[in-house]
Simulated assay, not measured.
Amino acid sequence: MATDWLDWDGATDRTRFGLFFALVVTVWIAGTAILLAGVLHEVPAVVLTILMALLLYPFAGYCVRRYHDAGASGLWAFFVFVPVIGLFCLFYLLTAPTDARGDVELFPIEWPVAGLILLSCIVGFAVSRVFWQPFHITDAAMKPTFLVGDYVIGTRVIGTPDRNAVVFFRHPSDGDYSAARVVGRPGDRVQMQGGLLYINGWPVERLALRPFVEEFREQGPNRIWPMCAAFGPAPGTECIKRMYVEQFAQETGHTILDVQNSPGDHTPVFTVPADHVFVMGDNRDNARDSRFAPEQGGIGFLPTARIMAEARFVLFSSGARRPVAIWAWRPERYFASIE
């Protein structure tokens, strides 16, 4: 049996990659500083440049693998090769013969060094893109934590996420990215009774807040209509829902919506199996989550292997179908942390 030594499965693999990553970063930082200082002669400078270039190739393969795992195109990884080309250009400039006239310098060293710094920033961004991922919210399952039109940054999850974490994953029904909150970890018993969440037989504390109010209109690129407590409000009028703060034991509280009575308000007891989590949308009556089986359009128990990232903050938000509509931007949500 063969394994990918850059895979995330297993503590040994993660430690090995962490050490390799630290080595590459150290070599690039130290090498750039040495080249900037100009303390090396041409031959040692060429050797150092080649070493810095060669270390990028394992990163390129790793990037392709991680982009494919995240459902993105592996073409992103070719940004890693851009510094390789730049380094060979620098190799040529370092070894090219100098003009015979002493008052003319055809290739000032500041140019390749500046290019090396720029290319180092590019490869740093390309490599970092493996560890984080942007997501566009197009449904209402996580209101009010996410609004339709939010652009959220998530970071890669290692192991089983904590309870209360908001995670992104591929939905088992359609394969699209979805977001939900982890409410049950392996071994937990989860149940809904009368719209109230119970974990291991104990009700989760919640506190009523002022109602959540939004305009009843089409939202986002999919033109979805919000669900309201009152049936059939006129377009352009207020859409009102009950809102609560839900508080897990020793965890940060988060807001949820309770719109109306729904089948998901009453469930049997679910016992979360190993290597799985139980997830629910914060918009409880407008989410097909672990309370529903995949054949019902739900998620069922979510395997931790399907989790792509954990939400960290909202980068950008727009209430229009397209983000170019400046009048619909929501700056109050920019860089808002996820609770």
Rank of each mutant, 00 (worst) to 15 (best):
R16G: 03
F20A: 09
T26S: 15
W28M: 14
I29N: 08
L35S: 10
L35P: 07
E42C: 05
L48Y: 06
L51W: 03
S73E: 07
G74D: 05
L75K: 07
P83I: 04
G86Y: 01
C89R: 01
Y92L: 11
Y92R: 09
T95V: 04
T98D: 11
R101H: 08
V104T: 09
E105N: 14
W111C: 04
A114I: 08
L116D: 03
L118G: 15
L119D: 07
I122S: 00
F125T: 10
R129F: 09
P134N: 09
P134G: 08
I137S: 00
A141E: 02
A141V: 08
P144G: 10
V148M: 11
R156F: 05
V157A: 08
V157Q: 06
G159H: 09
R170Q: 13
R170N: 14
P172Q: 01
D174N: 15
D176P: 09
Y177G: 14
S178F: 14
A180W: 06
V190M: 13
V190Q: 06
Q191R: 15
Q191T: 13
I199N: 04
E205I: 15
L209N: 12
R210T: 14
E215H: 00
P226W: 01
A229I: 03
A229P: 00
A230C: 00
A234R: 09
N261H: 13
G264D: 10
D265T: 05
V269I: 15
F270S: 06
T271S: 13
V277N: 03
R288C: 07
A293K: 12
G298L: 03
R312Q: 12
S318Y: 01
S318H: 02
R321Y: 11
